[in-house]
Design a protein around this nucleic acid. Sequence first.
DNA 1: GTAATTGCAAATACTTTGCCACGTA
DNA 2: TACGTGGCAAAGTATTTGCAATTAC
Lengths: 141, 141
Amino acid sequence: MNPVVKDTIDHCRKLGLRRTKALEELIATLLEADRPMTLAELAASDRLADQCDKATVFRLLQRLASHGLVRRLGLHERAAYFTLLVPGKHNDYLICTTCGRIEAIQAPCPVHQLEAEIREKTGYRNLYHELEFFGVCPACA
Amino acid sequence: MNPVVKDTIDHCRKLGLRRTKALEELIATLLEADRPMTLAELAASDRLADQCDKATVFRLLQRLASHGLVRRLGLHERAAYFTLLVPGKHNDYLICTTCGRIEAIQAPCPVHQLEAEIREKTGYRNLYHELEFFGVCPACA
DNA sequence: GTAATTGCAAATACTTTGCCACGTA
DNA sequence: TACGTGGCAAAGTATTTGCAATTAC
């Protein structure tokens, strides 16, 4: 098993979650995708399609998000997107407004400085940001 | 009438939209709010509540968005948020994950440089970004 | 054995559209 | 007059929940 999957499941166990097949497959799927995915995409994915109900995936995502292991993103679609929060992994995206393609941005994120300032000046706690770039990709243009 | 509202309506007229009471009130409401608003909020607002149907507000927002006068944002809620695109106005937000309060960020946006790089390297067209900070505001903490 | 987890189906929430009446140009 | 626009109601899509059965520990 992928060590990140293992670590994540261990983390879940410590939080009191039970080790179920669905949990394992969901985490593996999110990790392999390497981009945010919708509930519908996840429930229909190879690993989960015959494994469990969409409601189960939904509740797992909800639990994982409440413990900070998964983040729910707005993006531009009607459906919510979910991404696994892996320590040391960036989380900014480039999205094509025509075909919906989503790719992670490799460049270092330039907002940490501003985030620190906001934390100081406003007194907000547990601050994090969401940064997305939207445009029409070369293939669609 | 507010000059920005007037300019925006003039712009709409040039695009072929008709000058209706609903259009005027919607634009004025979005401008006065100074933060993104949901369809439900807009339809229930003082200026629009007794003015027109929610479907009308929806279709107006759709038309304005398709012409680039309004932008639809994801944010973290289930409902979509809409904001008027006023030339020269910033569009980054600070959002409380507990009470849902949304405020515009005054500081200069630090991602323009990165945006330019992405435009060059990836060939995406019509690039723009969406940047939000999420956290728990002092009142909720 | 006990409590968390799951599947299924039903309930919500929000968005989107059809159709005909209406108002702007 | 002609065509964009509006209201109302119905349909569509995504999310969320109730409850009894199941499973992890």
